[in-house]
Design a protein around this nucleic acid. Structure first.
Length: 697
DNA sequence: ATAGGGTTAG
């Protein structure tokens, strides 16, 4: 959508001439404003084939045509079609159809433009529209199918080819190798008349990607004349298996290292948790490229060092390295993990400027960020902006809706997904079942569960059974839930019992809840979530002292809270909550928050807060209660103090003192009326409503 | 037109 928009803007500022080819000498008529010949000729002088502006290409072509220089126009077109970006492919096609003169290069160029932009169906249609294609075209089409993992189609192209060169062989070998069919890849490799370095490397890489390190190494060792790509493929293999010692050995041993070698090692160290090693390599490498930067941003982010990740994002620009899709993606992902909505929005603005928001990876990260921050409307918009939605896009949107209590919407998206030809995977079904659970749609959920194998070939895993236990349990069918647990082909794990415990809590079955909790404690003695759930179970049935005991026991056993879920993680849209709707995940979190606080205060010897009744209270009253409890928490921790009568949202300039770090690592953000506290000590201060990263820009 | 490095959800 963004691309089209940009195109429209370009059109309106600079009209594209249309050509009438019917007359012998091409005449040009203009869609709107008239541009003089001399003006166009002047523009042609400034035209360069490195130009990314489609309008300039069009002018170049039409000016040549007007001057009767069909050959020149053809040359321009052929250069253009080969490098068309997705937004311009249709433009290229339009001109292509009007060209009076086409040669093999034009046809190939258009075909390649389709293939490169993932439009394999268009490529196929074009290919079928004529007979005499060159070898390059055959190879190109086959490569397109391989990239789309459509092996059968690729093979049929390969079999139908009139002649084959080594590229044809290598392409089909790569196809099998990258799709786990190493036997066939090997057969073709041996059958191939020419085994060049591409073929050898494709085999090494194939074994690596299929986790067969020994086979990869044996091919690698037997390989004549290796180049750096081969070395890098082998190093990547060790990196994947977290064998950094072996990777390092090869890295030191290889005759000449290129940027890829360094980047592979950096990523390897970062993903194995050795972020300092990664940094060391990054600092010492001879020439960093944009991928090195992205790798570092991702590395810091994945190791919980959000601030450093964002610093690197900023530093990257200072180093004159242009921000690319990948760096945006990583930075957005970082924002997700710390629920930094304001910063995320700033990034959103910037990537719209860069025209990146329609990309799949970036779009998915943006969508996830909005979901994580509870901005479901913005999430939906981001979702719609993604041009080629993949399974992750759909899963994230469905999960986002389900998680925020919009079960019906989640299912609507799922129905839509089915019509697009993107196959739902097991993660999709988890979200779909969760959506049914939240919407109370037991029958529909069961239908999905029992038909997912038939419809999509997805075998139910334990996690799906756990969803079903949750679905039945939430709907009050505790008997059925237990029966399912007895009869399912897996042993229930702590999460399954947790679903039963949660259901018991909602429906006030203390006995069953206790039983489930007992089993969970045996399985996972340090599972903090279960202590909390059991405590909530007691609290729900009014057994406050038992609830308190659970908390104490948890503390005495030295159970650590799950990082990232410290105390409260609520989103910023409290006004959308339905009061008393216990199925709403936010309501759940508010309960947790208030109960935790209440107990904490009691344990710390503060005057007990009032018993919380959230059902049927007015919005205003709810806010008041939240404010009341927040104040108590503030006093208890000495972190912040809210003067009586002031709404919470006016709190600003919080500073977390050293003493509080053990209890709550820091306060990350204040959004609206709610406080988000997070277990992370990276940021030391914040201003209300925005995080300190704003200073970066 | 073929081989290697970074990025997305849970």
């Amino acid at each position: 959508m963004g691309g089209n928009y940009r195109l429209r803007q370009l059109h309106s500022s600079c009209p594209i001439p249309t050509i009438n080819f019917k007359s012998a000498k091409p005449k040009i008529s203009y869609s709107s404003k008239k541009t003089s010949t001399s003006q166009n000729n002047k523009k042609l002088q400034n035209f360069s084939t490195t130009d990314s502006d489609i309008v300039k290409w069009n002018i170049a072509i039409t000016t040549h045509m007007r001057n009767g220089l069909c050959e020149s126009a053809l040359r321009v077109f052929n250069s253009m079609s080969r490098r068309s970006s997705n937004a311009f492919v249709d433009e290229a096609r339009e001109i292509f159809d009007k060209m009076p003169l086409k040669n093999g290069i034009s046809w190939n160029g258009l075909l390649a433009a389709y293939v490169q932009n993932g439009r394999i169906e268009d490529a196929k249609r074009l290919f079928e529209s004529k007979m005499d294609w060159t070898l390059v075209s055959w190879n190109c089409l086959m490569g397109g199918f391989v990239r789309k993992r459509r092996l059968l189609d690729a093979r049929s192209v390969f079999d139908r080819m009139p002649v084959r060169d080594e590229i044809s062989w290598n392409t089909i070998i790569t196809g099998y190798a990258q799709n786990g069919e190493m036997e066939e890849a090997r057969r073709l490799f041996e059958e191939s008349p020419i085994q060049d370095v591409f073929a050898w490397t494709a085999m090494v890489s194939g074994y690596v990607q299929n986790g067969k390190l020994d086979e990869a190494r044996s091919i690698f060792d037997r390989m004549p004349e290796k180049n750096s790509v081969s070395w890098n493929a082998m190093i990547a293999g060790y990196v994947q298996c977290k064998r950094m010692d072996m990777a390092r050995e090869l890295f030191e041993e290889m005759p000449s290292r290129d940027a890829s070698s360094w980047n592979t090692m950096i990523t390897g160290y970062a993903q194995s948790g050795y972020i300092a090693h990664a940094r060391n390599l990054f600092d010492n490498m001879p020439q960093r490229d944009s991928i090195s930067w992205s790798a570092m941003i991702a590395g810091y982010s994945q190791n919980g060092c959000s601030e450093e990740a964002l610093h690197f994002f900023v530093e990257m620009q200072r180093d004159c390295e242009r921000l690319n899709r990948s760096s945006f993606t990583c930075a957005l992902s970082t924002c997700s993990s710390i629920a930094a909505l304001e910063l995320g929005k700033q990034l959103h603005c910037r990537l719209v400027k860069a025209g990146y928001q329609t990309g799949c990876y970036v779009g998915n990260a943006l969508l996830a960020m909005y979901c994580k921050c509870g901005s479901i409307d913005e999430a939906r918009d981001a979702f719609q902006e993604i041009l080629e939605k993949d399974v992750v896009s759909w899963n994230t949107m469905i999960h986002g809706y389900a998680r925020h209590g919009f079960g019906e919407e989640a299912l609507t998206v799922f129905e839509l997904m089915k019509t697009t030809g993107i196959r739902p995977d097991d993660a999709t079904m988890v979200s779909v079942l969760a959506a049914c659970s939240h919407a109370g749609l037991v029958d529909q959920g069961s239908e999905y569960f029992y038909s997912m194998n038939r419809d999509y070939g997805i075998t139910a895993k334990l996690v799906h059974y756990t969803c079903m236990v949750d679905l039945l349990g939430r709907a009050g069918q505790l008997e059925e839930a237990q029966n399912l647990m007895k009869n399912m082909p897996f042993e229930p794990d702590a999460a399954t019992w947790g679903a039963l415990l949660g259901a018991s809590r909602i429906h006030g079955n203390t006995e069953l809840g206790e039983k489930a909790a007992q089993i969970i404690f045996e399985m996972e003695p340090h599972n903090s979530g279960m202590y909390i759930l059991l405590s909530k179970l007691y609290a729900a049935s009014g057994r406050w002292s038992d609830a308190g005991k659970m908390r104490l026991e948890m503390r005495n056993k030295g159970v650590k809270k799950v990082p990232g879920y410290s105390w409260l993680e609520v989103q910023n849209k409290i006004h959308t909550f339905k009061v008393g709707d216990t199925s709403h995940p936010h309501t759940d979190k508010i309960y947790t928050f208030l109960e935790e606080m209440d107990l904490k205060l009691k344990q710390e010897g503060y005057i007990s807060s009032t018993k919380m009744v959230f059902h049927d209270v007015e919005e205003e009253e709810k806010v008041h209660m939240l404010k009341y409890h927040s104040e108590k928490l503030a006093v208890a921790y000495g972190i912040l103090y809210i003067p009586a009568g002031r709404p919470i949202r006016v709190i600003k300039n919080l500073r977390v003192c050293e003493d509080c770090h053990n209890a709550i690592k820091y306060i990350s953000k204040i959004v609206g009326r709610l406080i988000i506290l997070r277990d992370n000590h990276r940021f030391h201060y914040f201003e209300g409503g925005s995080c300190s990263c704003r200073d970066f820009w």
